[in-house]
Design a protein around this nucleic acid. Sequence first.
DNA 1: GACGATAATTTGTGATCACATTTGTCGCCG
DNA 2: CGGCGACAAATGTGATCACAAATTATCGTC
Lengths: 212, 212
Amino acid sequence: MTTHESVYRGLRERILFGGIPPGSAITLRGLAESMSVSPMPIREAVRRLIAERALKMQDNRRVLVPPMTEARFQEIVFARLALEPELASRAMDRIGKAELLRIANYDRAVDHAMADGDVPGYMQSNFRFHFAIYEQAGAETLTALVESIWLQFGPFMRMAYGRIGTSALEDHHQAAITAIERRDREALKAAIAADISQGMGFIGDAVLKHPA
Amino acid sequence: MTTHESVYRGLRERILFGGIPPGSAITLRGLAESMSVSPMPIREAVRRLIAERALKMQDNRRVLVPPMTEARFQEIVFARLALEPELASRAMDRIGKAELLRIANYDRAVDHAMADGDVPGYMQSNFRFHFAIYEQAGAETLTALVESIWLQFGPFMRMAYGRIGTSALEDHHQAAITAIERRDREALKAAIAADISQGMGFIGDAVLKHPA
DNA sequence: GACGATAATTTGTGATCACATTTGTCGCCG
DNA sequence: CGGCGACAAATGTGATCACAAATTATCGTC
C-alpha cells in the first residue's frame, strides 16, 4: 500500500469519528512530522479529503475541519434521508445469515459503547453498523456519496455528544434488523429514516440549544 | 490562482463535457507536457478528480476515465432524481427576474446547439442551465454532491450523443422555466424529474441498444 | 504600557530527482 | 509462425529544495 493511502485512511478515520474538532487547523508539515513521513504523501491525502469535503481550505490556504452551520446541517440531513433508506433497501435482499449476524454484533457494540459513555466507540460502531448494511447493496457510487456525507458531520457529531453525553441516545437499529429478517422493505426504510431523523435531530438540538 | 487549480478546472471541464472518452487513460507526465507545467500540479488536480470519482485509478495505478456500467448508471439516475428536484425547489423562491433571464438564455443555447448537432455545445449549455438554477438554492453541500454525479456521467453522455446525435432530443426546460415563473413548486420538481428521467433514459438506451 | 512597523518563522506551492513497478518492444527459441 | 523472456522506456510515488505569501514574534516609538 502506498504511503499516502495509509495516511489518508488514518486521517479519514480521525475525522469520521470526531478525532479532530470542527474549526481545528492542520498543517502539512505538522502532520508529516507526527506521522514520520515527508510532506508529500500528506499533501495528497489532504487534497483528497478536501475534495471529499471532509476538510476545507480557506482563502488563506489554511486547511481546517470545517465548522458546521445550521444550513449545511439541514442539507446533510436531507441528503441522508434521500439516499440511505434506498441503500438499505437495495442491500436487504442480499443480506444473508452471516452478514446479519455481523450487523447485529455491531449493534451490540453500539449499545455497550452507549452504556459506557464511550463516545468514540459509539461513533465507530454506529458507522460500522450502517455501512455493514449499505455495503451489501453493492452500490459503490451511492455508498461513496453517503460516505462523503458522514465525513462531513462526523466532527460535529462528536462535539455534540461530548457536550450532552450518550445517555439520552436511542436508535432504531433493532427495528432495522427485524425488518431485514422479515424482508420487510418498507419497514427497513422507515427504520433507517427514523434512525437518521432522530439521531440528527438530537445532535442538531444539542448544539443549537447548548451553544458553546 | 494556483497552477493546480487552473489545471483542475481545465481537466474538469474536459471530463464534464465529454472531452475524454470513457476508458481513456491519462498520464501525469503526458498532461504535464501538454499543459506546459511540471507533473506536480497535475498530480494534485488528478488526485482531486479521483476523489470526486470523475477519474479512477485502477490497481495498475493507471488513471482513466471510468467506463460506465449499467448498475452504476442506474445509481446515478437514482441519485439525480433524489437530489436535483429538491435543489431546484429550494432555488425557486430565490430566483429573480435577472436570474430567470439568464436561465432562459441557457435554454435557448441548448436549443440552438441541439439544432446544430453541436454535442459539446449542447452539453455545456445544458449543464449551465441546470446549475444556474441549482446554484440559486445556496446549498453548497447538495450542489457539490450533484456536481460529482454529473462528472461521472459526462463522458458517457458524450459518447451516447456521439452515436445517435442530438436530433431526437427533447427536454423539459421550458416547463421548468414556466414553473419557476408561476412559483409552482410541484410543477418545477416534476419538470426537473421528467428532464432527468427522459434524458438519462435516452442516453441509457442509446448505448444499450446500440452497443459498440 | 499599547500600538504599529519590521524581521523571523511557518506554511502551501511547484520543480526536480531517485526509485520501484509496470508497460511496451524486440528478438530468440520451440 | 507463434509464444515467451529479456531489455528498454514510461509511469506513479516519495523526498528534497527553492520560493512567495501569510502568520507570528520582536522591538522601537509614541
